[in-house]
């Protein structure tokens, strides 16, 4: 028996919205420690890794490890039937091929259940090595989204360079070029509005902007985003999910031919 209950159903909606543009079908792996998901986009350029720890749920029961294959667009559509304040419960039998989503209004005067068929998804699991990154930038998530969107009006790729001066986002296109520099800024009143740069070595990498724009669908999950880069690794864009875990996006760089 699997039973996951979340008082803040709206959170689950945001999680699905953050993944469904990048990944169509994925397995939700549930164990006693929580729920996780790892999937690549169809071109294998980006990978999304989600973790929702069991202690972040209001009720979490998972008698047996389960891998539940779902179409993320279908789940997202289904969750749109829940109110933002609804309590959402997922239920699945150990041997069943369906999952039930139950939505309860905050006053408990409306209860809906939607049953969805599970899918058999053959997915490869990749080992993500622990790494020390050359540069880690923490910044407001809305600012990061704004930068990606603004640069995409000019070009398709972005060069992200971290030096002791700050982090520079540059692009070029048919109509011209653009550079946006963000300097470390820790003097603001609220920590979530600060930009913090931890740099061991300067690093400069090139990425396709359209993937970064997909990642910014996670902006509603967190006020801040952390971007980690090393010259020999995919970049990591991480949004923390309060008290529960994270959604991490890995993006393979463009390399000189």
């Amino acid at each position: 028996m699997l039973e996951l209950r979340l008082l803040q159903g709206g959170l689950l909606k945001k999680v699905l919205e953050a993944m469904r543009e990048l990944v169509t079908d994925a397995n939700f792996d549930c164990s006693r420690s929580g729920c996780s998901l790892q999937a690549m986009d169809s071109s294998h350029v980006a990978l999304v890794a989600l973790l929702l720890r069991s202690d972040g749920f209001d009720h979490f029961r998972c008698d047996r490890n389960r891998s539940m294959g779902m179409n993320l667009n279908h789940v997202a559509k289904l969750l749109r039937c829940a109110g933002n304040d609804d309590i959402v419960t997922l239920k699945a039998d150990d041997d069943g091929d369906t999952v039930t989503f139950m939505f309860e209004s905050p006053k408990q005067d409306k209860i809906a259940d939607f049953e969805m068929k599970l899918m058999d998804i053959q997915s490869e699991h990749l080992g993500i090595p622990e790494a020390e990154y050359q540069a880690i930038v923490k910044m407001p998530s809305q600012e990061f989204a704004r930068i990606c969107r603004d640069l995409s009006t000019i070009g398709d790729t972005v060069v992200i360079s971290v030096t002791k001066e700050g982090v520079k986002f540059s692009t070029k296109g048919d109509i011209g070029s653009a550079n946006i520099v963000c300097r470390q800024n820790t003097t603001v009143d609220k920590p979530e509005e600060s930009t913090v740069i931890e740099m061991k070595d300067p690093v400069s990498l090139t990425f396709a902007l359209r993937y970064l724009i997909s990642f910014t669908k996670a902006t509603p999950l967190s006020n801040t985003v952390t971007v980690s880069m090393s010259s020999d690794l995919p970049m990591v864009v991480e949004y923390k999910i309060a008290d529960m875990g994270y959604i991490r996006y890995y993006l393979a760089p463009k390399i000189d031919e």
Binding site: M40, S43, H44, V45, A46, L47, E124, H125, L126, G127, I128, P129, D156, T157, T206, A208, D232, L233, P234, Y250, A252, P253, K254, I255, D256, E257
Partner: peptide, 14 residues
Amino acid sequence: GGKQSTITNFFRRV
């Protein structure tokens, strides 16, 4: 803009 690498160039299947 360079050649696009893939995630599997960096991470191994387990």
